[in-house]
Structure formats: structure tokens, C-alpha cells
Design a binder for these strands. Structure first.
Length: 211
DNA sequence: ATACAGATCGGT
DNA sequence: CCGATCTGTATA
């Protein structure tokens, strides 16, 4: 499997959100390789998107990475206790990003269980196994991703993507509105969330999904 | 210097 | 549904 190059990421947030579904997120840590397959994403479209931290080109210490070149990690602390990971999209100066909302655990699952629950994978219930990475905060905990990874270059660090062997068909993907953005006015209704319909690791399913 | 809300999660 | 927990951001 192959690592995407910089130009892979130099597309709009919407395009990238769809494009990275099914790809693998890899984190090489001191305790081994942690790998998950991306099964749910959300696009944040920068200046024009009221749900985005970079809405209206708000440029602060926190949002700065999103204004940089594509293919870097934007990671922030949410609610004082969890982290969320995004991948910066689009060209430099255009602060698009893609939030990774859910993974299917692939490698290092035992370690993920320790990081999430401080216990052995074999002692986890089925519910706990499904809860390993089915949410943006959960997957960061399981993958040992935190603010220290903010700004890392996915083209040149221990945190990166790998392309999948197979590509997904459009009818395997559900498009829906984004989660927990009630403050975002008209953007509440934008169809900027994507997930693999067959995956049991999706965080929230759409009530009336078409595909 | 102060106020306040948040791209979440787990327990009730 | 509620509370945890704390930083980023805006306002002054």
C-alpha cells in the first residue's frame, strides 16, 4: 500500500472527505503501529462555512495550521477533555479541513483497548470493541493522538495515510448532515458528512439515508 | 482580566 | 438528559 503524495490532499474539503473513506490511518508509536480504516468523515469548508473554526478566515494560533499547506494534521482539544483530528485540505491560504469521525480498528487493537479502557482486549465486551474508535474523540484516544501531533505532516512523519487496495463505489457511501453543529445556522443543513454504510464502526447513522 | 461556549463522551 | 473540564476566543 502506498502513501498519498501532497497533491492528493490539495483538493477541497468536500472532495478530500469523500476521497479518504476506506483509506488507512497509521500512527507509528513507541508502543507499536496503530492502524485504523477510515469509515466516517466530515468536510469543513473554511471561510464560507459557519460550522468551521476557520469561518470568515478566522486565523488564530489554534486555526493556523489550516491556513498552511495541505496534508497536515489539525488537532484540537474539545470540551476540555477530548481531541479531534482533521486533515488539512485545499491549497495554502484556503483553510479547508476534514474531520475524521470514525475508524475500523485494523492493527494494534490490543493497544487501542489499553489506551481506551485500561484493560485487555479479551476482557472487552462486544459493545466496548465497537466503541474503540466510533467517534472523533474515541479514535484519537485509541490511536494515541493528541495536541502534540498538531501540525504534523502526513507526508513526512510517523502519522500518515495509506491508500487502500480497493476503491469504494458511490452506492456504498452515505451522505448526510454533520454532527453537533447546532450553532452553525444555514450550514446545519449542508450535506458534508460521509460514511461507509456497511461499517459497524460509524458513530451516528442517518435516519433517512438514501444510499 | 473576565466571560462563555464548545466539530464529545459516558453515565443516569 | 446532564455534567465533566479547560482552552480558545471575544470583549473590554
Amino acid at each position: 500500500m502506498e502513501k498519498p503524495n501532497r497533491s492528493f490532499y490539495a483538493v477541497s474539503g468536500l472532495q478530500l472527505a469523500r476521497k479518504i473513506l476506506g483509506l488507512y490511518l497509521v500512527h507509528i508509536t513507541d508502543h507499536g503501529r496503530l492502524i485504523g480504516r477510515i469509515v466516517e468523515t466530515e468536510a469543513y469548508m473554511g471561510a464560507q462555512d459557519k460550522a468551521a473554526h476557520s469561518f470568515n478566515n478566522r486565523r488564530t494560533k489554534r486555526t493556523e495550521v489550516m491556513f498552511g499547506p495541505p496534508g497536515h494534521a489539525y488537532i484540537y482539544l474539545i470540551y476540555g477533555m477530548y481531541h479531534c483530528m482533521n486533515i488539512v485540505a485545499a491549497e495554502t491560504g484556503m483553510p479547508h479541513a476534514v474531520l475524521i469521525r470514525a475508524l475500523e480498528p485494523v492493527e494494534g487493537i490490543t493497544k487501542m483497548a489499553e489506551l481506551r479502557y485500561q484493560k485487555n482486549l479479551s476482557d472487552c465486551s462486544k459493545r466496548e470493541v465497537l466503541g474503540l474508535t466510533n467517534g472523533p474523540g474515541k479514535l484519537c484516544q485509541a490511536m494515541n493522538i493528541n495536541k502534540l501531533n498538531n501540525g504534523q505532516d502526513l507526508c513526512n512523519s510517523n502519522l500518515f495515510l495509506l491508500k487502500a487496495e480497493t476503491t469504494l463505489k458511490d452506492d456504498e457511501i452515505v451522505t448526510s448532515t454533520r454532527i453537533n453543529i447546532a450553532y452553525a445556522e444555514e450550514a446545519i443543513h449542508f450535506p458534508y458528512r460521509f460514511y461507509i454504510n456497511s461499517s459497524p464502526y460509524v458513530s451516528v447513522r442517518d435516519r433517512k439515508q438514501k444510499a
